[in-house]
Write a protein that binds this DNA or RNA. Sequence first.
DNA 1: CCTACCGATCGGTAGG
DNA 2: CCTACCGATCGGTAGG
Lengths: 223, 223
Amino acid sequence: MSKPSAESQQEDPPKRRKVGRPRNETRSAEYEERKRLIVEAAANVFREKGYDGGSLDDVAEALDIRKASLYYYINSKAELVGLVFETAMDGAREDIDRIVLIEDPVDRLRALVEHQIGRVISDLSHFSVFFDHIGFTKESSAKSERLRQLERSYVEAFSQTVERAIAEGVLPDVDPRYATRAIMGMTCWTYKWFDHDRHDGAALSETCLQLLLGTGQAVGRQG
Amino acid sequence: MSKPSAESQQEDPPKRRKVGRPRNETRSAEYEERKRLIVEAAANVFREKGYDGGSLDDVAEALDIRKASLYYYINSKAELVGLVFETAMDGAREDIDRIVLIEDPVDRLRALVEHQIGRVISDLSHFSVFFDHIGFTKESSAKSERLRQLERSYVEAFSQTVERAIAEGVLPDVDPRYATRAIMGMTCWTYKWFDHDRHDGAALSETCLQLLLGTGQAVGRQG
DNA sequence: CCTACCGATCGGTAGG
DNA sequence: CCTACCGATCGGTAGG
């Protein structure tokens, strides 16, 4: 707010004139791509060996460089796993913003289940690290504030979608808190067992939806 | 101080003659109890810090002894986590053997869900280690052949119960393989978020059952 | 992006 | 059940 006339503001050395796009644009593109590759390699290492079990030497070896070189791109192992986490979260968050806008209750629930399962199976490595080694609901020092916020808003959006489905009558009249957890478990658990060579994501989604919606149910219920 | 020149017996004083049950019965009881405490402490450590992140020093410290002393009871860290795993599995396996015998389809499914959730929440530490740090479906060198067998037969019994529920019409006519995974996810996921101070296992079980059975559902389905 | 190296910590052992 | 200690490995730094 206040910065009209500053006399002694000599913090960061400016070093550059005001131009449209100031800094090292060329290097930045390569830099970001390298960084992306490092995060990708880290996700695979952490998925296979866990966060503590997987070393930065493992990550470096996967890229055929030395460990010390990683520190040109990251500041710590915790930051690296945070980036893995963000990668998994960012895409998922975009999905759910679109899902909330769907009007038909059944279509919306279907979209929720399909996208959750789809995200998880298309990114098994990232979600594995996410769920098992950082902690979804647990506290973790590896989580930055930004990450915590991403996660909170995601769960909230998920929860509201479930709540609406109950209010609209496409799901039974149950406790929405537990229903949210149950449906999350049903869909997220996928990362524990899914194998692209042996399983089919669409068929799994369909099964989950039929279990939730009761479609095809033949007997056993009465008013 | 000085041993009065006893030529023959210089080992530990046996102190008892041959009786019906030959060896160290008294010590064995203490020994087994100590071992149980070690496994319990290990479960808590591994739950909080993970298998790789939690050290044997942590386990020893929780019991107020030195790390080296643990090796009187266990041979390796892998064996220790295997014992944690067995503890979680043994009880669960007993449950499911009884559940299979239930005749009423709805009662059987209800028992399956209730016992799975009940086991998990009554033993969050053990299941946490089990699911995240040894791997439920993954391969793991920490698993002994006995463990692998325990696990396989458990999943199989679980799977058959789901399959029967589908055949009997209490669940929709879906792929039983995926339905098994879905219901396992729905129930097992509990270890990720359940807090005894804030949540109620019975209410959660009821929610899961209603979601699966469709009880209370009002609209959205038509022949 | 490298070589070289650090202090800390780990699982495990020796020997009592 | 202990003290003392090992070789290996870790995350991270120095300095180029």
